[in-house]
Write a protein that binds this DNA or RNA. Sequence first.
DNA 1: TAGTTGACCGGAA
DNA 2: ATTCCGGCCAACT
Length: 83
Amino acid sequence: MEFKDRVLVAVKRIPKGETRTYKEVAAAAGNERAARAVGNIMKANSDRAVPCHRVVRSDGKPGGYNGLAGPDKQKLLATEKSS
DNA sequence: TAGTTGACCGGAA
DNA sequence: ATTCCGGCCAACT
C-alpha cells in the first residue's frame, strides 16, 4: 500500500502557491493512471497534513474538496501552468 | 473473494 | 466549447 503513502507524501511535497493535478500526483506516486485512486485515497484518509486543496483536476477545476472555495490563486496558477 | 464506488482522464458526439 | 461514454486504479463493503 505504498502507493497511498506515496500519494500523500507527493501532495505534502507540493510547494506553497503551487497546484498539481491528480494525474501529476499519481505519476509522482508511481502510477500516472491512478489519478482516480488518488482522489479516492484523499477522502478515505482525513489527511490534515496534506493540502488536498492544492490538488486540482486536469481541467483546472477544483476537486471535490469542500474546505476551500475562495482563493482563485489555484485557477490562476493552473492557467499559467497550462500556458 | 467478488462487486461496487469515486475528489479522474481522454477521446468521441 | 460542452456533454457523454468507456477505461484504469485503489479502497470499501
